[in-house]
C-alpha cells in the first residue's frame, strides 16, 4: 500500500481552468476566421458591384467601358458574355488536354512504376505544381506562343476544310496568343492537381480486387480496366471537376497569352479574354462604374468557382464512401 499524496489536487479549481477556456476560445475564433472571410468576400463584393449588375451585364457581349462621348454609344456598356465564353472555352481546352495526361501519369505511378522511380516522379510533378503561374505566363507569351504559330498554321491547313473542325481551327493569329495557347498553358498547370487526386483515388482500390483480376489471368491493362478504373470512376470525376475549378480561376498566365480581344469566336486560334484576365488587365485604367463592373465579374467568378468546388468535393466524398463500403 502506498500512501496517497494528499497534496495532489485533481479538482478543476485552479487557475489553469481559465487558460483552458481561453485557449479553446482562441482556437474556435481562428476556425471561425475562415467562415467570416468567406462571408465578407460575398457581402463586401456584392455591395460594391451592385450598381454594375444589370440585364446587359449578363446577356450582352458588348464591352465599351471607356468611350462615353467618342464614336461609341453615349453610355458605357458593360456586357461580360465574351469573357464568360473565353473562360469556358479556355478551361474546356485545358481539361480535355490535361485529363488523359493526368490519368495516364496517375496510373503509371500507382500501377506501373517501381517504388524508387515513383518517388522521383512524384517529386517532379510536385515541382511542376510549384512553378508560379506567372512564370508559366512569361514562358507562354515569349516562348510558347511564337513557337506554336507554325503548328497552328499547319493544323489550320490540314483541318480548315473539314466542316465542324474547320470552324474551330480557323486562321491563326500571327502572335500565337489565343484561346488555344491559353488552354494549353492552363493544361500544364492543372495536370499536377488532377494527377495527385487521381493517384489517391487509384491507391484506394482494394488489393483483393486487383489480385482477383491477376488470378483470372488478366494482363496489366486488363487488370486496370477491370478492377482499377470502374472502382475509381467517381473519384476521378471529382478530380477533374477540381481541375476545372482551378482552370477557371487561373488569372495571370491566361491574361498574358489569351490575346486580349473582346470577342466571341469559334476559332480557337483567335484571341479572346477570360473573366479573371480582364480584371487584372484593365484594373489600372478603371474608375467608378468601370471598377464596379470588374468587381462584379469577380463576384461571378467567385460564385462559379465556389459552386464548382462544392460539387467536386461532394462527388469525391461520395465516391470515397462508396469505395470504403466496397473494400470493407
Amino acid at each position: 500500500m502506498t500512501v496517497l499524496d494528499k497534496s495532489a489536487q485533481l479538482t478543476r479549481k485552479d487557475r489553469g481552468r481559465h487558460a483552458d477556456r481561453l485557449f479553446w476560445a482562441l482556437c474556435v475564433s481562428a476556425g471561425f476566421a475562415v467562415l467570416v472571410i468567406l462571408a465578407l468576400i460575398l457581402i463586401t463584393m456584392v455591395k460594391q458591384a451592385y450598381p454594375a449588375f444589370s440585364a446587359e451585364f449578363f446577356t450582352s457581349s458588348t464591352w465599351i467601358p471607356n468611350d462615353p462621348d467618342g464614336d461609341g454609344p453615349a453610355k458605357p456598356v458593360y456586357g461580360t458574355l465574351a469573357f464568360l465564353y473565353g473562360t469556358l472555352v479556355v478551361s474546356a481546352i485545358a481539361v480535355v488536354v490535361a485529363v488523359p495526361v493526368s490519368i495516364g501519369i496517375a496510373l503509371f505511378l500507382t500501377e506501373l512504376a517501381p517504388r524508387r522511380v515513383r518517388t522521383a516522379i512524384v517529386t517532379l510533378i510536385d515541382l511542376l505544381a510549384a512553378v508560379p503561374s506567372v512564370v508559366f505566363g512569361l514562358w507562354g507569351i515569349l516562348v510558347v506562343a511564337p513557337a506554336m504559330t507554325p503548328v497552328y498554321n499547319w493544323l489550320h491547313e490540314v483541318l480548315g476544310g473539314v466542316p465542324v473542325l474547320g470552324a474551330l481551327f480557323g486562321e491563326p493569329r500571327s502572335s500565337g496568343r489565343s484561346f488555344m495557347t491559353a488552354g494549353l498553358i492552363l493544361a500544364i498547370m492543372i495536370v499536377p492537381i488532377i494527377t495527385s487526386i487521381a493517384r489517391e483515388v487509384f491507391a484506394t482500390v482494394p488489393d483483393s480486387d486487383k489480385q482477383a483480376a491477376w488470378a483470372l489471368g488478366a494482363t496489366r491493362w486488363e487488370m486496370i480496366k477491370g478492377a482499377v478504373l470502374p472502382h475509381s470512376f467517381g473519384g476521378v470525376v471529382g478530380a477533374v471537376i477540381l481541375g476545372l475549378g482551378r482552370a477557371m480561376g487561373e488569372t495571370i498566365a491566361v491574361a498574358l497569352v489569351i490575346g486580349s480581344s473582346v470577342q466571341i469566336a469559334a476559332n480557337l486560334f483567335e484571341g479572346g479574354y477570360a473573366l479573371p484576365a480582364i480584371i487584372v488587365d484593365q484594373w489600372g485604367e478603371s474608375t467608378g462604374d468601370f471598377t464596379a463592373a470588374l468587381i462584379g465579374m469577380g463576384v461571378v467568378l467567385f460564385v462559379i468557382t465556389v459552386v464548382v468546388n462544392l460539387i467536386a468535393r461532394f462527388v469525391v466524398r461520395r465516391a470515397e464512401i462508396r469505395m470504403r463500403g466496397a473494400s470493407a
Binding site: 468567406l38 463584393m45 475549378g245 488569372t251 480584371i279 469577380g298 465556389v306 468546388n309 462544392l310
Partner: peptide, 19 residues
C-alpha cells in the same frame, strides 16, 4: 469549417485581391 476551407482553397487569387 473543413468544407469551407476546402472551398476557400479554390477561391481564385484574383477574387481575393478584389476582396
Amino acid at each position: 469549417i473543413r468544407t469551407m476551407s476546402d472551398v476557400m482553397t479554390g477561391v481564385p487569387s484574383v477574387v481575393m485581391g478584389l476582396f
